[in-house]
């Protein structure tokens, strides 16, 4: 049962991500992305990381994707630019990146099949993650907070309406 669930979630994640990056309609693409994220959070849970699974849903699906959605709607892209997107996504444009990505995938799979290190598997609960975060990785947490602050300030600065529109 768990095995089946794992493979179904994995397949779903791959398929919905593939659709997310190829759909011409931005709103559709974002909805696929949410599906992908949800299936990823299932994968996380199955891998013994319930805390990460929860964060994935809350932060990614709940915050980041919604933010993207806001922007897409604000710029009013969903309908008017579908036709334009179709013309932009010609095979001559995507065939090269497709091959490149496939090669990278092949290389990564070869790397993994060559001998992934063996080891025990366990469930690492939120308590263990929290302990790790605030003991050995405390400095990292502080740096991450700087990053977030600068992200907030940067977004505010960049997002303001310029007085003079650029020529």
């Amino acid at each position: 049962m768990v095995t089946v669930l794992f493979f179904v979630a994995g397949a779903l994640a791959i398929v919905s991500t593939a659709l997310a990056v190829t759909r011409p309609n931005a709103v559709h693409a974002l909805l696929y992305l949410i599906v992908a994220i949800l299936s990823l959070s299932v994968l996380f849970y199955l891998l013994g990381a319930p805390f990460a699974a929860a964060l994935e849903v809350i932060v990614y699906a709940g915050a980041i994707v919604v933010l993207l959605l806001f922007v897409v709607m604000m710029l009013n892209l969903s309908h008017q630019s579908v036709a334009e997107e179709r013309t932009l996504l010609k095979p001559s444009i995507w065939i090269g990146p497709g091959i490149l990505a496939a090669v990278l995938l092949g290389a990564l799979i070869a790397l993994l099949s060559n001998g992934a290190p063996a080891g025990g598997d366990s469930i690492e609960g939120p308590a263990a993650v929290g302990t790790a975060l605030f003991r050995p990785y405390l400095v990292g947490v502080e740096i991450a907070s700087f990053l977030l602050i600068s992200g907030v300030v940067g977004a505010y600065h960049l997002g303001r309406r310029l007085k003079e529109p650029r020529p």
Partner: peptide
């Protein structure tokens, strides 16, 4: 297997970055 899935997702993301011209 999860690593394989991660690799596939990464490759898809790379494809998207390279192939799409729309910033979003």
């Amino acid at each position: 297997y999860a690593l394989v899935v991660a690799a596939v997702l990464f490759a898809l993301g790379l494809f998207g970055v390279l192939a799409r011209r729309n910033v979003v």
